[in-house]
Structures are given as C-alpha cells and as structure tokens.
C-alpha cells in the first residue's frame, strides 16, 4: 500500500504538481460560483477560477533552466563594444545596434521560457478584470434596487410579483 502511494506520489503528483494546484484552485472557485448565496462571494469565486486558469497556462510555458523571454544584452556588453570599436565606420548605430551581433549568435531556445502562454494570459487577465469590473457594476445596480446582495433575499422580494 505504501509503495502504491509512494509511486503515485512520485509519478503523478510531484512532477505534475502544477496541474494539481490549478485543479484544486479551480474547484474552490467553481464551488463558490455555484453555491454561494452572496453575489460578491460568487464574484470572488469567479476571480479564483480565472486565476486558476492563468496558473495552468503560465505553468505550461515553464522550462527547467530557462529565464524570462527577453533577450538580454548585458552579458555580452564587452563583446558589443569590442565589435563596435572594430568597425568605427558603421553608421546608424541606433538602428543596427541590436541586430548587428545577432548574425554570429544563435539563440538557444531552451534558455528562454515559452512566450506564448504569457501573451495569452495577459489577454485572459485583461478579460478577467473587465468581467469583474462589469459584474461589480451590475451587482451595485442589483443592490441599489433590491437593497441586498443575498440571493435568497432577492428571490423572496420577487416572489409576490410574478416570480417565475
């Protein structure tokens, strides 16, 4: 029994812990969205749900020894200056500055994290913020006309007047 648990831990949980964390977060968020009575608590659940999805995407783009997907020139500074001293006649430094040394420098793709999930999640964050903002505005309107944010109290108010 212990061996089964240990091997399950070793094969399915430890190397894939990111998926476990995201699923647990997502379940918390979804549960709050479905069952909570208070409208704001539902929205908090929504925010958790969306954060879980962001976690999934971003964790997919991780590479073991990689850095952020920005090509840094700090490490090669000496090299760059050296190259520039050699060809003093090179005009338009500003524009060819970055490109000139790229010719003799191949980018190792395993040194950079996958940029695409970051871009996708920037979009998803923006969408999440917008949805949250609009939902808060709608819940303010609900509060303004019903005087409460508890779903059951609102439904009680509606029942006499043609509740469906």
């Amino acid at each position: 029994m212990d061996i089964i648990i240990a091997s399950f831990l070793e094969d399915s949980i430890v190397p894939k812990f990111n998926y476990w964390i995201y699923v647990i977060l997502m379940m918390i968020g979804l549960y709050a969205m479905i069952t909570k009575n208070n409208l704001i608590k539902k929205l908090i659940g929504m925010a958790i749900f969306q954060t879980a999805i962001i976690l999934l995407y971003v964790s997919v783009g991780v590479k073991a020894d990689a850095n952020i997907p920005i090509i840094s020139h700090h490490g090669e500074k000496d090299h760059v200056e050296h190259a520039q001293n050699e060809n003093l006649d090179s005009a338009s430094e500003a524009s060819s500055h970055h490109g000139s040394k790229k010719e003799h420098h191949v980018i190792d793709k395993n040194k950079f994290a996958n940029p695409l999930p970051h871009v996708l999640m920037l979009t998803a964050i923006v969408v999440g913020v917008s949805t949250l903002g609009l939902a808060l505005a709608i819940s303010q309107k609900v509060h303004g006309s019903f005087g409460t944010l508890e779903e059951d109290e609102i439904l009680d108010q509606l029942r006499p007047g043609g509740y469906d």
């Binding site: 997919v60 783009g61 590479k63 997907p69 920005i70 090509i71 840094s72 020139h73 524009s95 970055h98 490109g99 790229k102 980018i107 793709k109 950079f112 996958n114 940029p115 695409l116 999930p117 970051h118 871009v119 920037l122």
Partner: peptide, 24 residues
Amino acid sequence: ANSGPVSSFYIEKTEEKTKVPNMV
C-alpha cells in the same frame, strides 16, 4: 507547447524579424 514550431519561431526569430528583444 515548449518545443513546437510556433514557440521556437517566436524565440529564435523575433529579434531578427522585429528587433525587439522582449518576445512577449
């Protein structure tokens, strides 16, 4: 996702094609 042609293209070709070091 990490080694596919799309991701590799972004990492390897971005600076050559756009001169922007920040791939994101």
